[in-house]
């Protein structure tokens, strides 16, 4: 008779404790979020992490960051670890849009809401998807290029495109916006060459190929940023320095000087820090029961010689993640 009575007593205590913890927020643990990111070694993701950390801290969330080092197994392990640790929300920058589907499935199983920051997913359920407005950025870049070409007294010719894979939505959006800007300008698309392994050699070879194929080529548009040197070297080696201009998407710290000295016409700079901050805000809104748009676009800064100085503070903070001591991301006015 004694044992059941004792057992029943302990059961009652545990239930009371649980009910107490759930119903008393002042004594509850802080709300915890996790950021699953593909590879923090890449500056873009690291800058985005800074934005996420800053906004999470500002909103009083506890944040754990898991980098997969661009390894899907590690990414899965990170997801299992994060989800099993009892987090309340997840921000996801997946290694690719395919693995994103698996991760979203695991999060759904665990009942954890997810906001995707860039890259995107092929399928699955999520709260919101934060992405750069690639089409807008590319369109503005196109207009800058046309203006620059016209300023040099050129009114017609071709523009070669070294593109990221067009199977990706962001790749298609960039091409679409750029071509739209060229319409009616006298310049047209001379050819598109897709990057596959994103190597220096590949970029160099594609650039040379475009110049060899098209004598009237006035510029090369590189849809990525990291292999810009390949394109520059190709122009130089082809002996067409000053005849074929370069314009890039994305940003590298050295782009500021390059735009200043004219070796780069312009660059479409995404704002990873702003994107990270927006992702946390979206999750925060969702957790607080507010309606969140399923898709949120962050403007891409089309930076040229003309607006560089004016945009510089924003570039340094939102694009390059510099000067961020105690500062949150700067939103577009």
């Amino acid at each position: 008779m004694t044992r059941p009575v004792v057992r029943s007593f302990w059961q009652s205590c545990v239930i009371a404790l649980v009910v107490f913890c759930v119903s008393s927020p002042s004594f509850a643990d802080p709300v915890r979020l996790a950021y699953l990111v593909s590879d923090l070694r890449i500056p873009f993701w690291n800058i985005m992490r800074g934005g996420i950390e800053a906004r999470a801290s500002a909103l009083g969330y506890e944040l754990s960051v898991f980098s997969a080092q661009n390894d899907t197994k590690r990414e899965l392990q990170n997801a299992v670890q994060a989800l099993s640790s009892g987090i309340d929300g997840l921000i996801l920058s997946p290694t690719n849009s395919s693995s994103a589907v698996t991760l979203l499935g695991l999060a759904e199983e665990a009942g954890v809401p997810v906001v995707i920051a860039d890259i995107g997913t092929e399928a699955g359920t999520y709260v919101s998807y934060i992405e750069s407005d690639n089409e807008q950025g590319a369109f503005e870049l196109g207009r800058i290029l046309v203006k620059t070409l016209n300023a040099r007294g050129w009114s017609e010719g071709g523009v070669g495109i070294v593109s990221i894979p067009q199977s990706r939505e962001n790749g298609r959006a960039r091409t679409r916006g750029f071509i739209q800007a060229l319409e009616g300008s006298g310049f047209d698309t001379a050819g598109i060459r897709q990057q596959v392994d994103f190597s220096y050699r590949e970029t160099y070879a594609l650039s040379r190929d475009l110049m060899a194929q098209h004598e009237r080529l006035r510029a090369i548009w590189l849809q990525g940023s990291d292999r810009y040197q390949g394109a520059l070297d190709a122009i130089r080696d082809a002996g067409r320095e000053g005849e074929v201009l370069l314009i890039c998407f994305d940003a590298e710290p050295e782009f500021i000087d390059m735009i200043r000295d004219g070796s780069l016409v312009a660059a479409g700079m995404q704002q990873p820090r702003l994107m990270g901050a927006k992702a946390v805000s979206a999750l925060d809104d969702h957790l607080k029961g507010r309606v969140v748009p399923e898709r949120q676009q962050v403007p891409v800064l089309a930076v040229s010689h003309d607006n560089l100085e004016q945009l510089l503070p924003r570039i340094r903070r939102n694009v390059l993640g510099l000067d961020v001591e105690g500062a949150d991301a700067v939103s577009q006015p």
Binding site: T72, K73, E75, S98, S99, V101, T102, E122, A123
Partner: peptide
């Protein structure tokens, strides 16, 4: 082997 369930799905 690549832990890509979405792909084999």
């Amino acid at each position: 082997e690549a832990y890509a369930p979405r792909e084999y799905e």
